[in-house]
Design a protein around this nucleic acid. Structure first.
Length: 856
RNA sequence: GCCCGGGUGGUGGAAUGGUAGACACUAGGGACUUAAAAUCCCUUGGCUGUAAGGCCGUGCGGGUUCGAGCCCCGCCCCGGGCACCA
């Protein structure tokens, strides 16, 4: 039942149809329903306390249009939504107020849900997921156990931001200008034990499989650059220091090996101490200390002037036996390659700068094809000063030198990646607990014997207080491992999360077979499987829950698996994934990594999670600046819904410009699309609230309107498929303008038009559809088809050009020959004057479109 | 510095190498109205002309082409990403 309001009362119409959809479960994605599947996914939001930002409904409207269009086109559509609800803001709120993060998170989710429902999106609410729900994160933890058992999770000491005053580890975004965001206290780098995921083991596949996905080029390129594969050689340089062994370096330019005039070690390189002469020891130690005090940012940012110090020792170049001095300098990073380089100042900008500063030798070994370029010369050329290799092209030189090194056992071809392993732990409360218990070696061995399939080939251990501790995985059957209630959300003070204070949860007797636990304060339960352990206090980063949520949507309540095989097969991966470009690297790379691990486990059938990706652009404030509270230029969707309605907001967001563009919000433009909806209302409904008197079953409509309707059907469909919503709306506006000028309209014409409008402005379309005699929901009616014969016309407008300049046009019969067209053009009164006294040299004729007369 | 993306009226934007400025906003004029709102009609890139029309015009400079907003070369500006990765 429609509302029967007389005027376009969106305040009544919108809630009415929202309840209708909810009550009828109009958008339920039934597993067995007919038609080809179509899975369209939004990047799910973090439910912040600030509520929905105008950028959210932009992307969500786009996917909603696609979802509604696909349903009408006969597809079985999966269009879900959920909440990425772990994260820092909730934790900070908890610290400030003392209320449990779960409580505040649920409040925020309720608000987000209300706002999203008010926009009329066609989500299947039965599939809503929440990453903080133990029934959800149980599977996040399960995936972690799979990574662990495959040797893809390990612990390592990693530098993190440490704030002594707060007694807390801070995230990058909590550190502003070297001080804590909260309180402005100084922060420092501190090495803490961290969980790390071995994403580098998948570097080659993450790179190679980019070719199989339909993503924006820029995003693919960003991932490529992030993975940063480079090919070269590892070379062993002999060392003069006794017992120091060879020095391993990585280079992409083995062809310049003869130009190596010094070596550089990163300050953290393990060989620095052994290679430092007593005379240089003080200087080197001072330099190391200085480098250690610098943050990553300082080391990269402030390193405009290269600095370094000589160790006093020498290495031996394997190709020519030359003695080369070994330096320590922080322009070489320990984290890349081997942490040591051969410096070729003649052909590397950084080495050149350093050599100039410290007056080191510069020997050119590549000759440019054309003389001229100054050193350092980075380009191609032939080898010189390179002994037997002189005269070779550099590419050939690379191959030959690498082969020589290999045959002599002093080097080999090598590939390096910029990609680093993924720091996966956070010293926080509000995240998924890592399902690991630390035990001693003997207990570990016993447990590993009981459940060998759950354990990695190499135990994960770390040494603390002189004792080796072993990482014991909780049995998957004991998941979820929930967060304990804690008295305070303030970090432990010594670098651990607040979980370190939850003693009964933390210090336990663990049954290694079942995963059952009892507080260690109590007696050891009887039975051989009980061991003494301490739980891992780190939690997972916010990325974890979003790495696999698209899989859970296919089977969100499954208690026995992350999703059933049947559901994964039926719905597959998203056919369209829409979200901000700010996730171009991290989220999308992490999710691809997890997906590939799951693929290798046989848990998912595809190698890539997101075959088609699209980024919506950012909506800027009215002032053209990024929307922010401090600028006061934030637009709240609630305000617009109250003043103009959700349909208007949706339409306007799509009309603003191309979806992918960054575009400023202009409050005045809203009136335009609102007027458009009102115009359509008036075309359908008369002033008394009945169907407009000009509408009838068999009205005589102009042929032009019929043609325009078919053109509109074609364009709206094509534009939706190409995600060009702004031009689809323009076309509908053109149609409504024409409709208005018709004295009589056919009911069927209006109904077809309302079907086109429905994905964009579903509430008003649903209302008018039913008032004109359609049966709700609109999407149940098959999407209108256009008739190409109706679009083709026998008259074409032929454009006349003289020397490429537009000189007029004329309606002509379609399919004219060039001779006929030429005769018409020559006799056209607007064209003729431009031909008089000139000679016709050439005619370019595009039938039914344009004829260009070239004269002189 | 390197890698991308983009510069079109007063504004947001439209345009498979084929009429630049669709659609909308703003502004101005008119109709309806006692009046206003709403609605409808007209004008709205610049210069020039009584008019018909003409000339110019898609950041700047070149080029390819019968024809360039679109392709190529060289610049300028704006936005994004990366940044000592050997």
């Amino acid at each position: 039942m429609a509302t029967n309001c007389k005027e376009y009362e969106f305040q009544r119409i919108e809630p009415h149809w929202q309840s209708f959809w909810e009550e009828n479960k109009t958008f339920r994605a039934a597993d067995g329903s007919p038609g080809p599947k179509y899975y369209v996914l939004d990047m799910f939001p973090y439910p912040s306390g600030a509520g929905l930002h105008i950028g959210h409904p932009e992307g969500y409207t786009a996917t909603d249009i696609v979802a509604r269009y696909r349903r009408a086109a006969g597809c079985r559509v999966l269009h879900p939504i959920g909440w990425d609800a772990f994260g820092l803001p909730a934790e900070q709120h908890a610290i400030k107020t003392g209320t449990p993060p779960a409580e505040n998170t649920q409040k925020n989710i309720a608000n987000f849900r209300r706002q999203i429902k008010a926009l009329g999106f066609s989500y299947d609410w039965d599939r809503e997921v929440d990453t903080t729900d133990p029934e959800y994160f149980r599977w996040t933890q399960w995936i972690f156990l799979q990574l662990f058992r495959r040797g893809l999770a390990y612990v390592d000491k990693r530098p993190v931001w440490w704030c002594p005053q707060l007694g807390a580890v801070l995230a990058n975004e909590e550190v502003v200008d070297g001080r804590s965001e909260i309180g402005g206290h100084p922060v420092e780098r501190r090495n803490l034990r961290q969980w790390v995921l071995r994403i580098t083991a998948y570097a080659d596949r993450l790179l190679a499989d980019l070719k199989d996905v339909d993503w924006p080029d820029s995003t693919k390129r960003m991932q490529q650059a992030w993975i940063g594969r480079s090919e070269g050689a590892e070379v062993l340089f002999g060392l003069e220091a006794p017992g120091a062994g060879p020095l391993r370096i990585f280079t992409t330019r083995p062809d310049t090996l003869f130009g190596c005039t010094y070596m550089v070690l990163a300050p953290e390189h393990p060989l620095v101490a052994a290679l430092t002469n007593p005379a240089q020891a003080a200087a080197v130690a001072a330099y190391q200390a200085q480098a250690a005090a610098k943050s990553d940012l300082e080391r990269t940012d402030l390193a405009k002037d290269k600095s370094g110090v000589f160790t006093g020792s020498f290495a031996v170049n394997p190709v020519n036996g030359a003695r080369v001095p070994i330096w320590v300098a922080d322009y070489v990073l320990m984290g890349y390659g081997t942490g040591a380089i051969m410096a070729v100042p003649a052909h590397d900008e950084r080495d050149f700068e350093f050599a100039k500063r410290y007056d080191l030798a510069i020997v050119p070994v590549i000759e440019p094809p054309e003389p001229g370029p100054a050193l350092p010369y980075i380009g191609p050329g032939r080898m010189v000063n390179s002994g037997a290799y002189d005269g070779l092209e550099w590419a050939e030189g690379k191959r030959r030198i690498t082969a020589e090194l290999e045959s002599r056992g002093v080097g080999k071809q090598a590939v390096n990646y910029k990609l680093r392993d993924w720091l996966f732990s956070r010293q926080r409360y509000w995240g998924e607990p890592i399902p690991i218990v630390w035990v001693d070696e003997a207990d570990y061995r016993r447990a590993a014997a009981l459940r060998p399939e759950d354990f990695p080939a190499q135990p994960v251990t770390f040494r603390q207080d002189g004792i080796d501790r072993y990482a014991l995985p909780i049995p998957a059957s004991a998941l979820p491992l929930s967060l304990p209630q804690v008295a305070s959300y303030i970090p432990s003070g010594d670098g651990e999360s607040p979980l370190a204070n939850a003693t009964p949860w933390l210090e336990i007797w663990l049954n290694v077979s079942t995963g059952e636990a009892a507080p260690a304060s109590g007696p050891r339960p009887s039975g051989p499987a009980w061991v003494r352990g301490r739980r891992e206090t780190n939690t997972m980063p916010q990325w974890a829950g979003s790495c696999w949520y698209y899989l859970r949507f296919t089977d969100p309540r499954n208690p026995a698996a992350l999703a059933s095989e049947a559901a994964l097969k039926a719905w597959g991966t998203p056919d369209l994934y829409v979200g901000g470009a700010e996730h171009a690297v991290l989220h999308l790379l992490y999710a691809r990594f997890w997906h590939k691990v799951l693929f290798d486990l046989g848990a998912v059938p595809q190698a890539e999670p997101f075959p088609k990706l699209f980024h919506q652009g950012i909506i800027l404030g009215e002032d053209g600046a990024k929307m922010s509270k401090t600028r006061g230029n934030v637009v709240n969707p609630d305000t617009i819904i109250a003043s103009h309605g959700a349909d208007t907001l949706r339409l306007y967001l799509m009309f603003l410009g191309p979806l992918e563009d960054m575009k400023p919000w202009n409050p005045r433009g809203i009136e335009g699309v609102h007027r458009f909806l009102q115009k359509i209302w008036r075309e359908c409904i008369g002033p008394e609230g009945a169907v407009n008197a000009k509408v009838s079953e068999d009205a005589e409509e102009s042929a032009a309107l019929t043609k325009l309707l078919h053109e509109t059907i074609r364009k709206v469909g094509a534009d939706i498929e190409a995600l060009r919503f702004n031009t689809a709306i323009s076309q509908m506006m053109i149609f409504s303008n024409a409709l208005q000028k018709e004295p009589r309209t056919r009911r069927q014409t209006l109904l077809a038009f309302l079907q086109l409008l429905a994905p964009f402005a579903p509430h008003v379309a649903e209302e008018l559809w039913e008032r004109l005699g359609g049966a709700a929901p609109v999407q149940a009616a098959p999407w209108p088809k256009f008739d190409p014969a109706r679009i083709a016309s026998s008259d074409k407008k032929l454009v006349f050009q003289v020397n490429g300049k537009h000189r007029g046009d004329q309606l002509v019969q379609a399919g004219l020959s060039q001779e006929q067209a030429l005769a018409i053009a020559q006799s056209n009164p607007k064209v003729a004057p431009h031909l008089s006294g000139k000679t016709l040299r050439k005619v370019i004729y595009v039938p039914d479109k344009i004829i260009n007369l070239v004269v002189n």
